[in-house]
Design a protein around this nucleic acid. Sequence first.
DNA 1: GTATTATTAGAGTATATACTCTAGGTAGTC
DNA 2: GACTACCTAGAGTATATACTCTAATAATAC
Lengths: 233, 233
Amino acid sequence: MKTRDKILLSSLELFNERGERNVTTNHIAAHLAISPGNLYYHFRNKSDIIYEIFLEYEKLVDYYLDIPEDRPLTLDDMMFYLESVFDGLWSYRFFHRDLEHLLDGDRRLRQDYREFTDRCLDAISRIFEKMAEAGIIEPQSDELRSAMSLNVWLVITNWMAFLKTAHACEESANLTLTELKQGIYQVLTLEIPYLTAAYRERVLALREKYRPQLPEAREVELPVGKTVGWNAV
Amino acid sequence: MKTRDKILLSSLELFNERGERNVTTNHIAAHLAISPGNLYYHFRNKSDIIYEIFLEYEKLVDYYLDIPEDRPLTLDDMMFYLESVFDGLWSYRFFHRDLEHLLDGDRRLRQDYREFTDRCLDAISRIFEKMAEAGIIEPQSDELRSAMSLNVWLVITNWMAFLKTAHACEESANLTLTELKQGIYQVLTLEIPYLTAAYRERVLALREKYRPQLPEAREVELPVGKTVGWNAV
DNA sequence: GTATTATTAGAGTATATACTCTAGGTAGTC
DNA sequence: GACTACCTAGAGTATATACTCTAATAATAC
């Protein structure tokens, strides 16, 4: 593999593990056992590395969210979208973590990210529209669909932050893809009231698969008698 | 005012304006025209300052979310909760911005914040419960109510980040309280399908008051023909 | 007044971070 | 073999940041 690609790969890996804020260009170089000078031969600065990684992320999500216009959507499609989006979120999880700071440091990125968000919101809205056409959910007004889509976006993009801050016990350490995908449970919660009678039971069954499990570690840690909070029933 | 209080006040102000990451203890001291030594006489370190500010924030929100158990809830109550929570969010807006990093730097804060989140989620859930008792929304299962409350929390706490990243045009600069409160529109969107016939129209009317206005600046900046994205109808 | 305590100034330090610069190596081509 | 384009090493730098230390000053107690 070319050094340039190795730098991108290692950067992504370190960013995801430790957070962009805690990874310096020197760390990246050290991790690859190359010199800082070498790294800076391939990239003008740290922002450039981040920007290139964003372009990959963007490409991936755009690919996932390409909605077929020649056929109706199925439940399988919907689950594929959800699974894919959370996979993408996982692979580039450093990105939404320090988003605000990243955008403050790079105008291009800010502009591109805004357009990216707009595209995603349009895609979510379009998915809802086609789900209504397919009889999975009741049709909604454009306005409601837009607002709903935005709520879906907020839940999706911030589920990880919630896990890391409110949920994780120690040091926000080892989060798993499985835990992340419990966000699908939350997204499907948003859809429940709009489901048609024909599909309601099937979607609820799918949703059950993502229901968060009570983490043992946490229960042990809590004082006896205390509620488990967000997960309590 | 005592120097100690002045430090807390200035820190909050600077953190809110520039983000915690961009404000050093030296900045705070300079802003107050005191010496770094003086600042460190009053606080052991930067984390201590942040922690004290968090305690204030926590106290404020706990006060707002104190739910009266001796009478039913009204629509006015609900709007008061929403307005208050967003006011609090505004006053301490630096906090949710760099939350993850702040928690990584202070164990006490991590623990306290987790308990704070749990309390807030319980409060939201309790509000839904009492709104059902008051006939404003249809009653829901415990499980659904918990999941809903969590979604409400996600929307509330991340609405500002959305505005700053996806919405703001330049440098995520001047955000106003009014814009922030458009988050109420999003929260009420979550409630719509559960509203009872008796209250539906009234809540929808309240919601309209918070509907986001198309920002002129943004439309001008966009290429002709491009959709406005999250706000498009 | 004197002793004690609380407060403040301000120079200074250890560490880190993004990034530069020069010199040299390597691979392919004619 | 020499020319060229690409790649790499590694020491070095300017700046920043959180924090310390000492000495001086103000406030208070007795």
